[in-house]
Amino acid sequence: MARKTDAEKAVGIRRAEARDVAFVIALDKKITGIEKPDYWHDMFERYGANRQDERFFLIAEMNGALEGFIIGETRAWEFGSPPCGWVFAIQVWPGKRLKGVGAQLFEALCDCFRAAGVTTVRTMIARDNTSVLSFFRSCGLMAGPFIELEAPLRDSGP
């Protein structure tokens, strides 16, 4: 692994606490344009406050300022897959990107997954979300053995 830069060394990763939820709501609103307080409070209850041996809600901070977060959990036997770690949310404050914060969040989550006993990390990204796809590819992820399929549901009629 590459040696950390001074900026990367200054980043601290820790478990999310209830007081961080306001930051998460604000960061998500900044990125998506939609404020979802109920959703993020619920996410904290599910992933930050319960079953912490398999659910991980991590926060990155630098010099006392919050920089980003990542959420993941270990899941077993979905789609016939042996236990693996799923990453399903990562956000870094705009303007604080390209400084290794996202990579450190991801590495910290992978450490949590390893401690939980899984050996594979997995995520799902919209095909047209090039920047996030590039980020995960730079972390070493490649196409896995599953293909996501979907279809619009036809109207069942009268």
Partner: peptide
């Protein structure tokens, strides 16, 4: 084709070097 395009667009030279 759409999968191929998404793959080519998301892999940087830096990632290729890794």
């Amino acid at each position: 084709d759409e999968h191929a395009i998404a793959t080519f667009r998301s892999i940087t030279i830096s990632t290729m070097l890794k």
